[in-house]
Amino acid sequence: MAYELIAIGTSLGGLSALKTLLGYLPKEFPAALAVVQHRHRESDEVLSSFLQQFTLLPVHEVEDKEQIQPGNVYFAPADYHLLVESGYFSLSIDEPVSYARPSIDVLFESTADAYAERAIGVLLTGANQDGVQGLSILKARGGMTIVQDPDTAESPTLPNAAIANVAVDLILPLSQIAPQLIQLCTSAGGYSCKPSLQ
């Protein structure tokens, strides 16, 4: 079994971090990526179409019950939570979680439920703590957890909070995250030879 889904969460500074990360992934990247980027609720599809310019992978603004396909990047739409089910996405307008909708925690917790050890959770630059609890649940369910090195983050609050609260598997500078994802998702054996910090 290999990694099938990579859940990514970020807020302040996320746009340029995502540009770097997504821009590095090759066309035949074998896993799907689901992204929550905190944003203003009236921002429309500009986020996904903007990022599409920088990546070879097709970028989608998720529509309800859309299938999760390898090699695709899926964005949580403005003002909806993005939830992962087994093989597809659902959306919801439940109340905001830690003032956020979409919320990174909601994405990560549902990813942990549906994909567990077949998922990787990545927290990038961010100005609050949304995502920390979700990352810790994903970790407990056997998922791989990666946090951007706070020194390389435009806003280190979120990476710092994640590192303080979760025994994360890897802390990597931004430039190293995509290469690591490629290695994790393409090397045979997948999660069974997961590296450890200790």
Partner: peptide
């Protein structure tokens, strides 16, 4: 009903 959100609720 969709499972993930039901579980959250």
């Amino acid at each position: 009903y969709a499972q993930a959100s039901l579980k959250r609720r």
